[in-house]
Each structure stands twice: as structure tokens, then as C-alpha cells.
Design a protein around this nucleic acid. Structure first.
Length: 361
DNA sequence: AAGTCGGGGCC
DNA sequence: GGCCCAGACTT
């Protein structure tokens, strides 16, 4: 008696949850945003997940603590002015996260609390499919699998999926969802999600995975084939063009510096900057740059050297000009601040300009 | 499906 | 110098 083999569904490909959960109980990372008593406050889970979007655990740790000290609960965050949130976020990057965080806090307060499942969370600003599932699983115990870069890598290797990202994303998400067919995973959705993160971060790493230490060794198709370090494959990316700008550091006798607030959306949206020229494909000559200086009165002096900064899709090379006046007069769209507090509120690209030797002759 | 959106650490 | 990071949003 013969019968057709069942289609290779997720359960046929993926290993069991229990070995991973056992490994997690013994080797899980101790992280600032993980509570040791097992309690998971939605506010803390949400905040950490937003901060961790495309941002390393090491970078988030101290910023998470600092943010909590300034905005201890969601009511405090919702009540704060947006500029205060943007300033607290300075240096973390992807500033739309801070705007959305603030808008989300106000919505959640208006709702009377966080939605308690992924579908409801997904409707809030800044919360996509991944973050909704992560909060739902970790804070509310919903049996869903958040699919981040770690999970994509782990699953691509377990199933030896050779098609490149991002085209393979839906397939990997479907495979990952199959984990929740396992009762052991359903019993501990938050721990299972974080176990996948920890496995991807410490064992199933991008370059040279430590397969000998993996609780799922033997259940991994890529490891059996010896191709684990090559997965997941990725489609080639475009080269980043080089762009050029010139910025202006205007100081006065009181130590105030002239700053400008960028438009509310787009690149560095809502953040402060040193006034400057547009960023274009060709370098700026001195005369044409100075024609765009915020004030035409003082003697602008070019600062030695260039500041370079890499964005996601282009590289930027900047000149800096400096001048002093008796008293800065912030016109429309500009504001004056003491140098020290200005620097703390500026994104990294602007701090690199201030690191140029503008104090010297 | 592709582009936009930061910054830092690691190889 | 390229890759990666507990991705989201727009077009």
C-alpha cells in the first residue's frame, strides 16, 4: 500500500521547540530591558522593541535606561512635548521612530492601554508586523512568532532556503509561524521568541555560526549540507552615491550657537542641525556656499578639513564655516542655544561637524 | 518591489 | 569598505 508523501509543511521541516527552550533557560542573555522576575510591562517591552529596530542590543542598553529615567511611564511620555522626545532620541538614528513613539503613546493613553494582541498593536504608529508580534508574545503571551533578522537567518538555515532575501521573506515568515504548532512553543511564546533572538545573536550568527553549540544541531538542513554560513542569501544592493554640503557655525559672545529645526518628516525629520546648504552631488565652492550663510554680516572663516558621514543610501561630505557676532538673532525657523546643550540635542552627523577644529586659528 | 530612513560595531 | 543590527513606512 503506497500513498503520496505529505507536502513538506513547516512541521515536517522545523525542529522541536523544547531543545531551544531548554537551551534558553540555561544560556539566555541578561539584558537591561529584560526583567528578571518574569514580569513584562507592556510599556517597557514596547519601548525596547522600538529602540531595538535596526539597532544593536549594546547601543540600546544605556539609552533604554536613560529614556525610562526621563519618561518613567507612558503617561509621562504622552504628556511630554515632541521636541523633548526628539532630543532624548538624539544619536539613536531613525528619528521617525521617536515621532511615532510619541504619537503612539498618546494613542495608547487615549485608548486606556495597549491593545493586547498583535492585530490591535499593528494598527499603532511605528508598530509593524515584527514589533506587533514581539510585544504580543513577550508582554501578553499571544502564541505568535516575531520575525526579525535573527529569525529569518535561523529559519533560512534550518530549512536550507537558498532563494535570496527579500524575495524569500514571506516563505520564511510562514515557516516561522509553523513553530507555534508545537505545544511547547505555545506554552511560552515570549520565551520562545527571545530564545530565537538569542540563538541568532550568539550561536546562529551571520558569518561563522557556532553550530557545535547549537541546541538544534542535527535538525538543521543547511548545517547538514555545509552551507550554513552562506545563508540567508541576499540580493545585491545599489552603490551609495557621494553628496556634498556646507554648514555654518555662528557663535556669539554669550556662547550661544545658531541652530535650525529640520522639516518634520524625511531625513533627520524634526531634528536640530547647523544651518547649511542643500546636500547635492557636486562640492560647494566657498563663494557659492557663503551666499547661503544664515547671516551675511560677519567674516566667515573656512574650517580645516571635511566631515564625512554615511547614511543608509548615500554618503555625505561636509565643509564647515564659522563666524562670531556680538549677539545671535534667531530669525524665523532658527533658534539659539548654548554650545553644550546644542551638541547633546544634535544628530551624530552634526556632531561630526562640531568635531572639526573650528576653535583653532 | 523598491526606496527612504541613522548610527555604530565588526570583519 | 561592506555587512549587520529584536524594521517601519511610503510610493
Amino acid at each position: 500500500m503506497t500513498r503520496a508523501a505529505p507536502p513538506p509543511g513547516p512541521a515536517a521541516i522545523l525542529p522541536e521547540a523544547a531543545p531551544l527552550l531548554d537551551w534558553y533557560d540555561r544560556h539566555r542573555r541578561v539584558l537591561p530591558f529584560r526583567t528578571s522576575d518574569g514580569r513584562a510591562e507592556p510599556y517597557r517591552v514596547w519601548l525596547s522593541e522600538i529602540m531595538l529596530q535596526q539597532t544593536t542590543v549594546a547601543a540600546v542598553g544605556p539609552r533604554f535606561e536613560r529614556f525610562l529615567a526621563r519618561f518613567p511611564d507612558i503617561a509621562a511620555l504622552a504628556a511630554a512635548p515632541e521636541a523633548a522626545v526628539m532630543e532624548e532620541w538624539a544619536g539613536l538614528g531613525y528619528y521617525a521612530r521617536a515621532r511615532n513613539l510619541h504619537a503612539c503613546a498618546r494613542q495608547v493613553v487615549a485608548l486606556g492601554g495597549f491593545p493586547r494582541n498583535a492585530e490591535g498593536l499593528r494598527a499603532l504608529p511605528g508598530i509593524g508586523a515584527y514589533t506587533a508580534a514581539a510585544i504580543a508574545a513577550i508582554a501578553f503571551g499571544e502564541p505568535v512568532v516575531p520575525v526579525d533578522g535573527n529569525v529569518e537567518r535561523v529559519v533560512a538555515r534550518l530549512a536550507a532556503e537558498e532563494m535570496p532575501l527579500p524575495a524569500i521573506k514571506p516563505r520564511l515568515a510562514a515557516l516561522a509561524a509553523g513553530f507555534m504548532a508545537d505545544p511547547a512553543a505555545r506554552a511560552r511564546p515570549g520565551d520562545f521568541a527571545q530564545a530565537l533572538f538569542d540563538l541568532g545573536a550568539t550561536i546562529c550568527t551571520p558569518r561563522s555560526p557556532a553550530c557545535a553549540l547549537c541546541p538544534w544541531r542535527g535538525g538543521c538542513a543547511a548545517q547538514r549540507a555545509g552551507i550554513q554560513a552562506m545563508l540567508p542569501r541576499k540580493s545585491p544592493k545599489r552603490a551609495r552615491p557621494l553628496r556634498h554640503g556646507a554648514h555654518f557655525l555662528l557663535r556669539d559672545a554669550a556662547g550661544l550657537v545658531l541652530l535650525r529645526r529640520r522639516p518634520p518628516r524625511g531625513l533627520l525629520g524634526g531634528m536640530l542641525e547647523l544651518p547649511g546648504t542643500p546636500w547635492r552631488d557636486t562640492p560647494w565652492g566657498t563663494a557659492e556656499a557663503l551666499a547661503l550663510a544664515p547671516v551675511q554680516g560677519p567674516a566667515w572663516r573656512p574650517v580645516l578639513g571635511l566631515a564625512r558621514h554615511g547614511f543608509t543610501h548615500f554618503e555625505l561630505e561636509m565643509r564647515l564655516f564659522t563666524a562670531t557676532v556680538p549677539m545671535v538673532d534667531p530669525a524665523e525657523g532658527l533658534e539659539a542655544r548654548p554650545l553644550a546643550t546644542a551638541e547633546a540635542a544634535l544628530p551624530t552627523v552634526m556632531r561630526k561637524l562640531l568635531a572639526l577644529p573650528w576653535k583653532d586659528g
